[in-house]
Design a protein around this nucleic acid. Sequence first.
DNA 1: CGTCCCGTTGAGGCGGTTCAAAGTGCGTGG
DNA 2: CCACGCACTTTGAACCGCCTCAACGGGACG
Lengths: 237, 237
Amino acid sequence: MLATAFTADTAYAVRGEDRPNNRAPAPDALAQRLADGTVRTFEGKEHIYREGDVAAHVYVVEVGHVCIYKMLPDGRRQVIDFAYPGDLVGLGAMGEHKCSAQATSRTRVRGIPLASLHQIARTDGRLGVKLYEAVSRELQATRELLFTVSQRNAMERVAAFLLAISRRCERNGEDPLEFVLPMTRSDIADFLGLTIETVSRTFTRLRVDRLIDLSQSVLVTIVDHEALARLAESKGH
Amino acid sequence: MLATAFTADTAYAVRGEDRPNNRAPAPDALAQRLADGTVRTFEGKEHIYREGDVAAHVYVVEVGHVCIYKMLPDGRRQVIDFAYPGDLVGLGAMGEHKCSAQATSRTRVRGIPLASLHQIARTDGRLGVKLYEAVSRELQATRELLFTVSQRNAMERVAAFLLAISRRCERNGEDPLEFVLPMTRSDIADFLGLTIETVSRTFTRLRVDRLIDLSQSVLVTIVDHEALARLAESKGH
DNA sequence: CGTCCCGTTGAGGCGGTTCAAAGTGCGTGG
DNA sequence: CCACGCACTTTGAACCGCCTCAACGGGACG
């Protein structure tokens, strides 16, 4: 009965990116459930689930990173989110998954059976509310991405992307100014609605302009955070 | 406590666009609550609420249409959704609204106090679950829009937009092949991530190519639904 | 050492934007 | 009732940012 109502996968955020002062991400009622579940490990490029698969679990990322995306029959792809450790993946898709989830590298996840989650939610209102909040945050994030893709140019998009990754690293207790990009240029391109060439050129441009450093193509150092933020927020001037 | 957790407004769909055979939109537990509430009427261009306002109610659109949007300081705007009669507006924003909601013409809405909604949800798990489902559907819709804006060209976007409106009209028991657009070209442009000129040119192109008819600029008649659907789905060929 | 995958760089074309102007519908006041 | 103003839409012309196509470079792996 719930099954037919859910239409979307959710790689949302127990994380709560952009909630102020939030380092203990998983909300109480939910957190209890998330401690259960069985651990599975996926290699890079391996799929945790695919569009159309029956959805039986949600997954908490413990180690590694997951790319959530949707395909169009003609091959066009939209990357919807990148899940970092602590993030929850696959919520909101009971009948069948509407997105695919692919590990970008060796990734360990904890699978929580959806059945138990929903059973509890029906009797304990608090969990239902928590799920609601969780999806609301995911919705907020998706609208932010919509704004970025719809209104900003290539430079602004890449700047906003880097800052978002930086914030996630900070949340996870890593260096927010020097981090490894766990996804390919192709993933970034399909996330931002650009081509890999444009993404590559924009990275180069940011490096030449001394806003970032790229000793390796996957290793980003933010040199001028201020300027990057200015780029991401306003158009040019 | 809930207040701090919600981050997003929701102009979601009790509507359930794209749920198969769904004409009785409001799900039971939710529907009861929605029968309560006080009615208010807004003129065209009037705001039901603005970004930053304290969020005290959700609103069910009864008559008219509402445009949900977000602004950037530099004036760029992203329209997130158009709410039709039967749609719910403002869910998911307890502390303060993160979007603005503006009536596109004289509009009657029914305001439901959030306080009562959340109180009930905490004790009755079913309502919480319903809210969860509702936001999940909204998330699904936003991802669909993200895909459209990110991956499709102007012609495909406008075609997809017209088909979406057509489906909404059908759901509301109106003619799906001839309908009035309750929003301006500017609203459509900011929804699809285009300029008004491009939207206008694309409409003209669709008219010249005999896919639609435009006796007045707001009155759309779908002439070749087949071709329109082909346009919206695949790229050219 | 060759192959494959990924990232980078270059040249050229095109779709959508920008800037500008004319057209259309509608309410308001003379 | 008509004239006017205003907001919205349409159309045109020129420009530009991103895409497309193509080639090259570098690291991983057999």
